[in-house]
Amino acid sequence: MAVLNAKNREIQCKIVYYGPGRSGKTTNLEFIHKNYTKQVAGKMISIDTHGDRTLFFDFLPLGLGKIKGCDIKAQLYTVPGQVQYRSTRELVLKGVDGIVFVADSLKVRREKNMLSLKDMHENLKKIGIDIRKIPLVFQYNKRDLEKQGFPLMPFEKMDHELNRQLRVPSFNASALTGESVGKTLSGIMKLTLQNLQKEFQWAQNR
């Protein structure tokens, strides 16, 4: 749930990077942390270990400047991808304002992407969020591996398999080299803020 602080005109929103294990969610946040130093508004937290009742998640607070007189703050979270951390994913999704689904372009991970999307759909439903209404973008990650000759899924095929029904913005990216990491983030922020604008009407009555 975004927090709108009318007094000091600040909007705080929660963006979650979702996707199968090892698709590059943490790497996205690491790249942002290293390269957008002006926007980074605090420590990046990575809790990464093994275990079934544990949470693995990353957290990065950002300050994205002013839009229409309002300070925009975003908190980026990642979820643990491994199947057994379902309850942690549900927890991290609570109060989400926008989602980046980081899919793995490696051919061998094709099925894992689809399973993770299904899992996200179910977890959202549980907390009363309609996947067709929440701001969402897809990121097809690890595209840099194509040039090195590794077997990847073509963009069109991935977009067809994952995004055919939802029809939200999608990006080819490489979190490792940083390609389209910023584009993905600004893509989801744009949708999220549009959505919050509808909800709060904050840009009016200035």
């Binding site: 937290i45 809790i47 990464d48 270990t49 275990g51 079934d52 009742r53 544990t54 949470l55």
Partner: peptide
């Protein structure tokens, strides 16, 4: 390795 991690204050 199934123990929950020891977390810092920030974490």
């Amino acid at each position: 390795d199934i123990k929950p991690p020891e977390v810092s204050k920030d974490e």
